[in-house]
């Protein structure tokens, strides 16, 4: 599903963010990307949805070399990749329903599809009762659920979660992990960057560790270190 071959990423010609990294993730896997801040976790993810391009090496997503993907096709790549962030990136002037519907609307789904899909996904993430609230009326955990609903409503092949629990307390984080686990069980490949030792150790999934841009460990059913 995802393959990096000897990928090097250098920002602005000087910051070495990834160095000769190779890694393959199968369909349906759940992978933790761990490592200290600045080790290249976010860069790894940004390469996958072509927010950044590799300077050397190749990146494959769903069997396609995305390095040669023309710009006009990038949106279609992104429709297969859901993204979740530490800061949620919800639109403050839209309600929960509107936030999720917006993601479908701007990729051209008809209203009827939106009307049926959005409530269903909000049910899945457990936010049916707060559908018409605005993000600032929700707790951090609830906001993250909305953002997961938005990322998953289009049933992407891959879900990228960049420190999704970074702003949440341990209990709330566990709830989010349960949700991501459920999503993974539907067959969606999940890649999650985190510093959260407790979560990694509890879940016992594949762990890829980065340090200064290099992959220093790749372990199935691993722990944080």
């Amino acid at each position: 599903m995802i393959k990096l071959e000897n990928v090097t990423k250098i920002y602005k010609g000087e910051v070495l963010a990834l160095q000769n990294a190779s890694c393959e993730v199968q369909r349906g896997e759940f992978v933790f990307l761990v490592g200290p801040s600045g080790s290249g976790k976010s860069t790894f993810m940004r390469l996958l949805n072509k927010e950044e391009d590799a300077d050397r090496g190749r990146v494959y997503v769903a069997g396609k070399d995305i390095g040669v993907l023309p710009g006009y096709k990038v949106p279609f790549l992104r429709r297969n990749i859901g993204c979740v962030f530490q800061d949620f990136k919800l639109l403050p002037n839209k309600t929960v329903v509107q936030n999720v519907a917006f993601a479908l609307e701007v990729i051209g789904h008809p209203r009827s599809v939106i009307k049926s899909k959005v409530p269903a996904i909000l049910e899945l993430v457990g936010l049916s009762r707060k559908m018409h609230n605005y993000p600032d009326e929700l707790s951090g955990g609830e906001q993250q659920r909305v953002s997961i609903a938005r990322a998953f409503v289009n049933r992407p092949l891959i879900l990228l979660a960049d420190e999704p629990t970074g702003n949440l307390d341990p209990n709330t984080s566990l709830g989010i992990m349960t949700l991501l686990d459920r999503i993974n069980r539907t067959g969606t490949t999940v890649v999650m960057a985190t510093h959260d030792r407790g979560i990694v150790d509890k879940m016992r999934r594949r762990v890829v560790e980065l340090d200064k841009g290099q992959i220093v460990r790749d372990q199935s059913r691993g722990v944080y270190e």
Binding site: P75, K89, F102, A103, R150
Partner: peptide
């Protein structure tokens, strides 16, 4: 957000 979820330019 639009770019993230794959809206075309």
């Amino acid at each position: 957000v639009m770019k993230l979820v794959g809206a075309t330019n």
